[in-house]
Amino acid sequence: MAVISSDERTRHLSPSDDAHVVDLEERALARRQRLDKLGTWLLPLIMIALGLIIWDVIVKVNEIPHYILPGPGRVWATLTADWRLMLDALSITLAITGMALLAAVIGGAGLAILFKLLRVIEMSLYPYAVILQVTPIVAIAPLIFIYVEERLIGLLICAWLVAFFPVLSNTTLGLNSVDHNLRDLFKIYRASRWQRLIHLELPSALPYFLGGLRIAGGLALIGAVVAEYVAGTGGIGSGLAFTILEAGYRLNIPRMFAALILIAATGIVIYALSSFVSWLLLHKWHESAVKREQ
């Protein structure tokens, strides 16, 4: 009897019990998601702070002289003390990187579209695009600086050469990965070549193009920095890379670190920006940018 009654009681209780359990589970899930969100921001910050502290401790405990390894405090001091010089260098590097990226996007995507519209052009020009891509930029750069008088233009060309190929090849891939049934549908509805490009091929290529853009952003910065190393001499229009080079000659290690940090920060900002643009354009419809509930 006792067994039955307890059984009955549990059965009786079970619906509200279930609701309770579901409630708990849901709350736990919500808490986990909140922690997850917090963690994605907090953890990296904590790790970076930890790295800085360890760096500082190592320098202090081992009494490493600042001309060999400056502590983070000293690097920060250099950064703020030389801020005019640093800002000038940063703005030059930023300008070259930005313009090169812009030119890479226009040139790469434009060429990809031209290739798509006119196979003859693709067949004739693609070899050149590949040759330029596979030849290391440091090998081409000295020639460019001989032929191009204007230093800034030379830097721009170098950065552009490195950045443009991923945009070209990704956009080409995208333009060619149109769903074949959609292509047939456009044919049945008698779409013009232009309509097919605008309403079908370009939207299909967008996610691929944005992937290329993200790669190109990083490469444009690399191209700008490497080109400046090759260009060597300073003067007006010296960017962060030349700052490092010059500081190296003078064994001004803290300044080298300061410039290095600015370059890294620039790279991060470019990556964040291009990721944001990607998200902006894709989050409504593309799987890569869709957040799923687990």
Partner: peptide
């Protein structure tokens, strides 16, 4: 073709961006 014909494929074949 054009407006006189409708086609439905095995896949829905929609434009995901629209």
């Amino acid at each position: 073709g054009g407006q006189d014909l409708g086609v439905v494929f095995q896949e829905p074949t929609l434009m995901p961006w629209a």
